[in-house]
Each structure stands twice: as C-alpha cells, then as structure tokens.
Amino acid sequence: MPLLKLSHLRVSHGRVEALSDVSLVVEAGEIVALLGANGAGKTTTLRTISGLMRPDAGDVAFEGRSLVGLSPEMIVRAGIAHVPEGRRIFSGLTARENVLLGAANRPNLSRHAREAEADEVSALFPEIASFRDTLAWKLSGGQLQMVAVARGLMAKPKLLILDEPSLGLAPLIIQRVFDIIVEIRRRGTTVLLVEQNANMALSIADRGYVLETGRIVTSGCAAALGKNEAIKAAYLGQRAA
C-alpha cells in the first residue's frame, strides 16, 4: 500500500478549474518531486492534500484511509506536515516559538517533552541556535526556510510536504536546504517536494511528476525525467543554452 495516493483529483477555485485530473503515488521512504510551470496547479495539489481545499472529485488516500473532508488539523494529526510556499513563519513570534508550535498537532505532549523534541529537531540545523530568540520578521529567507522545515518536522510527520523550498534563496543556501532534505529522508521521513528549480529537485528525488494546466503529463524516475528533452525545453529553458 502506498503512503499517499491521489486518484483522479479535480479541484476548482470558484468556477475556475485548477486541477482537472491528477493521480500520483508516493511510497514510504521516497523523495518525490512534483514539477511544473507557474500556475500549473502544483500548490493547489498540495493544498488539497493538506485539507485547505476540497476536491470536486477524486480521492486523497493516506495509508489507505481517505482524507477527503477532513480538516487541516486532522490531516496533520494523521501524519502529514505541509511546509507552505513562502515559508509562512509567524512573524511576531521568535524562531524557537515557531519551531515549538510545530508540535501543536499533539496537544498532550508535556512542555518538557516538547522542548526536548525541539532541541532534537534543531540539531539538524545548527544555524538555528544563533537566532533562536530573534523575532521571525527579522530573519533572512534562508533562516526562515530552516525554521519552516524544523517546524514541519516537529509534527513528527510520516510525510513531509515542501512547497518551493528554494524560492528566493541564494544558490549556496539552496544547496544547504537540499542537503537537509536528503538527511531528513535518510532518517526515515518520506518527502513530497514541489519545485520550480527542476534540475535541483530531480538531483535528489527518486521519482518525479510533471504537471501542466491541472494535469499530470509525464512521470517517471528522476534520472529519466532529467534527460527528457520535452521537459528540459518546457521547464529548464535549456533548448538555447
């Protein structure tokens, strides 16, 4: 049984159809990349998985159970953490407080256990220690991204969803974020990754899907997708390069 299975998902924003037919599978332990141009429907797909949008048709199944109709709170309790596009860190709270709030899906956790887990997660990102008590609006894009991933991991998810983690980051920082993603998978968390930076995403992913105007148009193992001429032309701009 796959960890996550989307079957024939159809979703609309008001009267405008955003996804017309999206099916994909994420197996436990994989890194799967979801690629596509701006406006293709990547973010809508992720928002549907985490319950922020309801599908008109189709199903989202997690460990064999349907998630359709569940609230975002219930879905994160089921084991899916979604790190949204643009980080969305609570700007009036400190880095540490943001990380701690990641455990909000487990209300029975004691304060002590929560602090201990936050230390453990933060160990993945030694940088965080230097700005742990800084209010988030003062942090840079790269620092925010680390806080966002740490906050996502605090939910102890089985599946971590990352929406454009490289957005607006300098190349060096992007490299660092991607190294962390690989490390997260090595520690046993499955990752579903949406990226504009397709080369980068395919360099760490096991498999990939390509979305175009609300439809999956291509899928396959990452290495093969990286060599696919049509994809290169459409998303990587390599035809002239």
Binding site: P171, Q175, N197, L236, G237
Partner: peptide
C-alpha cells in the same frame, strides 16, 4: 542568443545542478 549563453544567467536561472551536469 547572447543572453541565454551567458554563464551568469545559466548559473542563476537554470540552477547549480545544471552547471554541474
């Protein structure tokens, strides 16, 4: 033709991995 061959553009826009590849 000039711009898309510019190494600075290739690095920034098309990603590190591409350059490495």
């Amino acid at each position: 033709a000039e711009v898309l061959r510019d190494p600075a553009v290739v690095t920034a826009y098309l990603g590190e991995a591409h350059v490495r590849a």
